[in-house]
Write a protein that binds this DNA or RNA. Structure first.
Lengths: 155, 155
DNA sequence: GCAAGTCGCGAATATTTATTCAAAAATCGG
DNA sequence: CCGATTTTTGAATAAATATTCGCGACTTGC
């Protein structure tokens, strides 16, 4: 076994942050992140993760995670300095963090302070932060570094 | 046209009331109801109906209708006045929108709400919005989605 | 009427996805 | 550590699904 759990996490992230519509593309994106598996394995993964292939508004096929049954598993809420829930998504070399209204600028300050190892700068709105990643730093790495002072980012 | 509409209704009903997991079975059930079509047509139908193939709790594949937008309807209420001029420019996976001073944050809110299919997050200043696009989404696509609620973006 | 444009469809085919069949790799109970 | 058992996986293949091509039926505008 290699590391199914991490791979599952990567698959979920990819599906949430990009518009993949077939297993081959997904396979490549996984490969970019260091997960080398075959289509057979991916097919099984998608089945276990209950990923659905569906048509989006533009008539293209895309994968979607199945809706977590509402009320089912509440979202984790941990805290940074105050009790804030933070989520992170990636696209290219940019990370986008969402938090509760009003907390973004404070959090951005923390990121500038403590995350400089992976982030070269941030811009914050009311509840959203855009953080530009250093070149050649992986999404996993960013998440890991930020998790050190933003507990709710952890798995 | 024979009776596409009726057939669509039948497909929806079958999917809701039984556990079909492939097009061949579905084809037979349709046949029982008097709809004789080929797999090719059914594949197209499922695409149009936005039917998803997903794994159920028992680990079997089943078709599911896509969730009607959560929170019920009330979706096309708030919109951006056609009078407010908005322009959009792209660079890499980032879209930059300009509008009249003071309108940016309101517009950004709309984009977060309604554009999540293509945008993973926004930050707004006075008259500028930075929106980070999902990976593998084209500029045209972003423009198209945003145009649905920002009339002045249309060409 | 008729040329031009749509639309829905089936047959054939291309593409994508799931499963079968071993074979490693991990796990467990002594 | 060692055999027995379960998991995870890849290669090959089967199965399922999507698309291409073309055709006939229907409009529409002249």
């Amino acid at each position: 076994m290699k590391n199914k759990t991490k791979r599952f996490g990567a698959i979920k992230e990819i599906i949430q942050t990009s518009n993949v519509g077939n297993q081959e593309d997904l396979l490549n994106l996984l490969s970019d992140r260091g997960f080398e598996v075959t289509q057979a394995t991916l097919s099984r993964d998608l089945k276990q993760l209950k990923v659905a292939k569906i048509t989006n508004a533009s008539g293209e096929y895309v994968y979607r995670l199945s809706q977590p049954t509402k009320g089912g598993e509440a979202k984790q809420n941990s805290f940074i300095s105050p009790n804030v829930q933070v989520t992170i998504l990636f696209s290219g070399n940019v990370a986008v963090l969402h938090t509760r209204a009003g907390y973004a600028s404070g959090l951005a300050y923390e990121i500038d302070e403590k995350g400089s190892e992976v982030i070269i700068g941030t811009v914050a709105g009311e509840d959203t932060i855009i953080a530009v990643m250093k070149e050649n730093v992986s999404k996993e790495r960013v998440k890991q570094v930020l998790s050190e002072f933003i507990p709710s980012l952890e798995k």
